[in-house]
Design a protein around this nucleic acid. Structure first.
Lengths: 330, 330
DNA sequence: CTTTAGAATGGGAACGCTCCCAAAATCTGA
DNA sequence: TCAGATTTTGGGAGCGTTCCCATTCTAAAG
């Protein structure tokens, strides 16, 4: 493990010049730069991150915080894809990722403590609930951060999100236009995402002049079994379509419908959300909304890096569009 | 963000004494220790990890490397549970986790570079293929590491694993004892885990005096759809039981069997592997092998920490037992 | 009451880098 | 050819710890 000083000696320059080269400082003679770079790569030199940090620099490490339990983490394909895309993008930008999968409340405290004095240049936080105290903590700690999903509070924060309202509207309108009259919905758990989509569902029905029947709204906890149970509650109220806010629950709903001898989509149309891998292969293939999850992760990283490097005044925000993919179930 | 020096001043002692207290050095007067600890906690002081590292200490960060693609990562519940249990245990021990989800080969190079000069005290590597060069790289780099799953090479390495042979044997024997004669198996992808379980499958049949029919062996790539397809290949050879080496494929197999009008377990018994969440709720509920995944993660962390702190001569190894859970599908 | 071993404490040096300012080298134009 | 501007380079200081050695304090023993 070599140090900057050894590289300097080998290249016949000073420590400072090597530092300039590896930090892309323009004030270096081109020939010198080349010579140094050669020595750097032939020694496979990587600057010590701890020293870098201590000297006031950056570590090149960013944190990814996903404060949800394992039960959702592995049911929803959203998270692995997100994790993968964030880590890939970071690798690409020569950065490392440090993870926190926050569980219950008592963990949160330790998270904010860790964040406040650690090796992180910045943090990405996904899937938080409304007014999660972690946001306030981050805001206060001055550390650059980006949220995935919008934060409903008056703090000016950077975020990247998909257009939940718009694509919910698209899905529900599609059902309406195909002649459905009693459109039910299966939400997840009480929280931001569920609420956003539920609101959009209500608004879309209202705009189309359809009444919103509270009996046609059920919670499924984001899991397959929950979708099954929710469908059982919904069915007595005679829906002719169901909009489930993720694919796992859509699959559960379909399973129940079939057990009851109903056909999908002829008797009841079902639309999911996520375009999970199972969506395309399931019988019937799921009509669902595809979120650009990988893009979401990539953007979050880019925004964070931009914030770290350029410290802009204003928070950065970005809303990505998702798409209704029409298959067989609706 | 306070420094050790400020804490020292507040407590009326020297930097060194504070350092001793936070590092549990016994050479501190009991009263002094208490006084210092009080100041530490009232200031919410956390020692700067970068400085610690630089001064020759530890960072308290361990790496978790899972060199597989996202397709398996989110299909198998194994990984989220493992990730969760590792992070939880680390939090508990006041350590942070840094992640690498390695994708293809070209990423490996960067991994070993990162590892060689970074903030990590040690590394846990899960799910590697045979003779993965990363193991040699780790071995050479002198950094403490623990594998999850055994490594088939002559390097003396620490690992924690489950008893794949034994539990496969249990499962297959269970099928034999319940009178099945033509027991098929669905493996994953070519690799260590598949091979271990396949070997055990062959051996168990042989020991019971049953012939091994190569037509009763199919690959399913660890995914649900693959299990479905594998079952389609298997069925013409008239199996009366199937041992799938994970639950996703077991579910796929069952789906195909039913579409063909066969009953599970009456016509064909199906045993899975993993005890995935879906196993209990599926109809029919899956008979499957439950691995102590969370325990695996916990043990890996403990072994790694032991290695970091005590630097034992010999590699540590541990094999955990898993259990056949009998439900409805076999 | 002195000596001395042992416990408790303090402070310098070092870890490997970046930042900043000063010095050296090079270039420019009259 | 030389002053002055500009580019390029060098080295000191400092980041917040730990480690090590030196010093001070305490208490037991003579």
């Amino acid at each position: 493990m070599s140090t900057i000083e050894e590289i300097a000696k080998q290249a016949g320059v000073s420590r400072s010049t090597v530092s300039r080269v590896i930090n892309n400082d323009p004030n270096v003679n081109e020939l010198t730069r080349e010579r140094v770079l050669e020595v750097v790569s032939s020694n496979n030199f990587v600057p010590n991150r701890a020293a870098r940090k201590l000297a006031g620099g950056r570590t090149g490490v960013i944190g990814l915080v996903i404060p949800i339990g394992v039960s959702r983490l592995f049911v929803e394909p959203f998270f692995p894809i997100l994790i993968q895309s964030v880590t890939n993008r970071c690798n690409h930008l020569n950065r490392s990722v440090m993870f926190w999968l926050g569980e219950p409340e008592y963990e949160r405290r330790s998270i904010s403590q860790i964040l406040s004095n650690d090796l992180l240049d910045g943090v990405i936080v996904s899937s938080l609930e409304d007014k999660d105290p972690i946001v306030a903590a981050l805001h206060q700690s001055q550390i650059p951060f980006v949220l995935i999903g919008r934060y409903r509070d008056n703090l000016p924060v950077s975020f990247v999100d998909i257009d939940n309202e718009k694509c919910t509207q698209t899905a529900v309108n599609y059902l309406i236009e195909s002649g459905r009259k009693r459109i039910a919905t299966i939400t997840g758990v009480e929280g931001m995402v569920s609420r956003e989509r539920l609101e959009a569902y209500r608004n879309t029905l209202a705009q189309a002049g359809l009444a919103v029947d509270e009996n046609l709204i059920a919670e499924g906890g984001f899991v397959e079994e929950g979708g099954y149970d929710a469908m059982a509650k919904l069915l007595p109220h005679k829906p002719d379509a169901v909009f489930a806010i993720n694919d796992a629950m859509a699959v559960g709903a379909i399973r129940y419908l079939r057990e009851q001898g109903l056909r999908v989509p002829e008797d009841v149309a079902v639309v999911g959300f996520d375009d999970a891998p199972i969506a395309a292969s399931y019988k019937p293939a799921l009509t669902t909304i595809a979120q650009p999850i990988a893009e979401l992760g990539r953007q979050a990283v880019d925004m964070l890096v931009q914030q770290i490097d350029q410290q802009p005044e204003e928070p950065l925000t970005q809303v990505l569009t998702s798409e209704l993919i029409i298959r067989e179930s609706a």
